[in-house]
Design a protein around this nucleic acid. Structure first.
Lengths: 246, 246
DNA sequence: CGAGTCCTTGAAAGGTCTCAAGTCACGTGG
DNA sequence: CCACGTGACTTGAGACCTTTCAAGGACTCG
């Protein structure tokens, strides 16, 4: 179950296409016209539903494909030589992941399914070739990587400067924004990751995550009911996420 | 002095070219042949020496160029809305920086000169166009960004999991490796950044940085003499950098 | 040579972790 | 369908590491 999924086992027979995918405004297909979309469509391999705990690709694997999340959510994480796991990101529908394997040709991190998830798989070599033909696609690839770098720089700031309350507040706000863009509720959502995973991602222990969530609830900023989060006072949460007063 | 340098003030008249630059095995020119090198050379603008404290480009500027460090060193940093500075990286000869502005078209961070430095400036649009023609250049751009993502993921792990001693040890090891690749001494080098900047980058206070360096010296792992560092026991330092025993 | 910044060192404070225990939710099997 | 077991989550108390505050010393640059 923790084995990487063989590529040939991933694909599902389906009549889904990029042109009728409601995510094309989020994923790499942004702003492509019908002709272009169909060329992209030709190299996309859509997965059957993958279930929680499955590993989409593992650290150390040969880099071959990138993945666009279609439904569900995944986490990426690196395992250090001492065996410690570090979650490097959570990804949702429309997100494109796996591009960080380009440099070495080896996947630098593992991708694990957090809940029932479907993905679109694209062989990187094919994508690269197509990008020569489609400037908008080429630009979109660069943009995706550029955005990933910026996201990680925000995380550096979070980890280097923020205390536990600010980290959790930032985490919730960012999730809220990402759900909003995807057309989900920005004020009420379900956490597909565990408290342990949140803590790992934010450089905190499970206990601290739990305490902070309880505290934020007591202060009336949010409601927590197991994995369901409701944001009651997004202004206060945002203010908290930005750190100490100035 | 803290003003961004106007583009027209950066260039120097020189007979330097990519083809006779001793960094071509490190920078974006990797593995280009003479014809290709000359095409790249046509769009490169070489700077006169820039001095410590100058800002090469500032957060919020329109994104137009990327820079390859030729000599010297720089830091990149973001300033949060509360005015706090977070250093996101230190860069040395052969490093290519600025690609993270692609996503939004706005520079997400500032670049500041740490010591007398010369850079090669390239308009991104020109680079992008040339990359269509030169697959190796296109691949190199993607590799550079991919590597940047991986580097930042290592930093996430450092900030989320490591204690002060491990952070400093990791920092010194990484510097050592980077200097080695560049043909400088891996065991003896000068820190072009201040203790304050090291601390900012590593999520520590100046005092802690100072204390750890003193401690590492007492334990015989390194010698510290102001900004000069000598690594005496790289094995022990590496072991320390990898964290708790397993 | 002097002013200012950078660096070092010490002592106390504070925040998060660790350890421990108990509660709760969920999936499995009877 | 319910009982049970396991893992996830919560809560508390003490320990530890880093920060904060403070002050002295060293280096650098005009």
């Amino acid at each position: 179950m923790n084995q990487t999924i063989p590529a040939q086992n991933i694909s599902a027979h389906s009549d889904q296409h990029c042109c009728n995918c409601n995510l094309h405004s989020l994923c790499m297909a942004v702003s492509l016209d019908m002709t272009e979309l169909s060329k992209l469509d030709d190299i996309v391999d859509r997965s059957k539903p993958l279930s929680k705990g499955q590993t989409l690709s593992a650290q150390g694997d040969k880099f071959q494909s990138v993945y666009a999340i279609k439904t569900g959510s995944v986490k990426t994480y690196t395992t250090s030589c001492s065996g410690e796991e570090q979650i490097t990101g959570f990804y949702f529908p429309g997100d494109l992941i796996g591009l960080n394997g380009i440099d070495t040709g080896i996947c630098p991190d593992s991708i694990k399914i957090l809940e029932t998830t479907t993905v679109c798989q694209v062989q990187f070599e094919q994508l690269d070739m197509l990008s020569v033909e489609l400037p908008k696609l080429r630009r979109q690839l660069l943009k995706t990587m550029s955005k990933e770098i910026c996201n990680e720089q925000h995380m550096l700031q979070l980890l280097a400067k923020k205390n536990a309350d600010e980290r959790i507040a930032t985490f919730l706000i960012r999730l809220s924004n990402r759900f909003k863009v995807r057309g989900f509720s920005e004020s009420r959502f379900r956490l597909s990751m565990s408290r342990h995973e949140i803590g790992n991602y934010l450089g905190l222990t499970v206990e601290t995550v739990s305490r902070v969530l309880t505290r934020l609830q007591k202060n009336g900023l949010i409601t927590v009911e197991n994995k369901e989060i409701e944001i009651l006072d997004s202004k206060a949460l945002l203010k908290l996420s930005n750190g100490k007063e100035d």
